[in-house]
Amino acid sequence: MVWSHQDVAFEEGLTAARAWVAVHGHLLPPATAVWDGYPVGAWVKNQRFAARAADANAQRRAGLAVGSSAGALTEARRVALEEIDPGWCPVWDAGWQRCFRLVQNLLQDGGALPVTARQSDRAGQGPRKVGDGAAARMGTAPARTAMAPGERPRDRGRR
């Protein structure tokens, strides 16, 4: 039996990842997430980096089979992670994917999305509807006119 520190570390991370998914429903933990003392967020982030390194190696080698190279995720490890959550390594931002999965889980559990979009008011007056006052502001802005040939922006008020 050959024993490998890397294999043991991967199995520990995989165990923490399975536990994370069992509770959260996705394998997209924030980088700071810790599960039972194990830094599952950093581990998954590193696995995503290794998967992208393997993809880059495959492209660089023009479609030839890629063996295990330094920093690249092996196919067996990628399959193990995809068995837990097929969306664990999106090509787009993981934060976006995390939000998508949270909304997806909410809807699957019978929850509902808010009917109106809301955002916080920068003046500190609390939440407001998107677009409140937009129609009123549209008519109050001064009209823009084209500059005359040779006119500089600082000359505009001197006509």
Score class of each variant (00 low, 15 high):
H5D: 12
Q6C: 08
D7V: 12
D7I: 05
V8R: 12
V8S: 08
A9V: 04
A9I: 04
A9M: 07
F10Q: 01
F10I: 10
E11K: 08
E11P: 00
E11I: 06
E12P: 01
E12F: 07
E12V: 04
G13D: 00
L14V: 06
L14E: 13
T15W: 02
T15D: 11
A16P: 01
A17V: 04
A19G: 08
A19R: 14
V21S: 02
V21E: 02
A22V: 02
A22S: 14
V23I: 14
V23L: 08
H24Q: 15
G25N: 07
H26N: 11
H26I: 14
L28P: 01
L28M: 10
P29N: 01
P29R: 01
P30W: 05
P30Q: 10
P30E: 09
P30C: 03
T32N: 15
T32G: 12
A33Q: 07
A33S: 12
V34Q: 10
V34S: 11
V34I: 15
W35S: 15
D36P: 00
D36I: 00
G37L: 04
G37M: 03
G37F: 11
P39E: 10
P39T: 06
V40N: 07
G41Y: 05
A42N: 08
W43Q: 07
W43A: 07
W43Y: 06
V44K: 02
V44C: 05
V44P: 00
V44F: 04
V44Q: 02
K45P: 00
K45M: 02
N46Q: 15
N46Y: 05
Q47R: 15
Q47T: 00
R48A: 07
R48F: 10
A50D: 08
A50V: 05
A50Y: 01
A50G: 03
A51C: 13
R52H: 14
R52L: 10
A54Y: 03
A54K: 03
A54Q: 04
D55N: 06
A56C: 06
A56S: 14
A56L: 14
A56T: 08
A58E: 11
A58L: 15
Q59L: 12
Q59E: 12
Q59G: 13
R60F: 09
R60Q: 13
R60M: 10
R61E: 03
R61N: 05
R61Y: 01
R61G: 06
R61F: 02
A62I: 09
A62E: 13
A62S: 13
A62G: 07
A62N: 14
G63S: 05
L64M: 09
L64P: 00
L64F: 06
L64C: 06
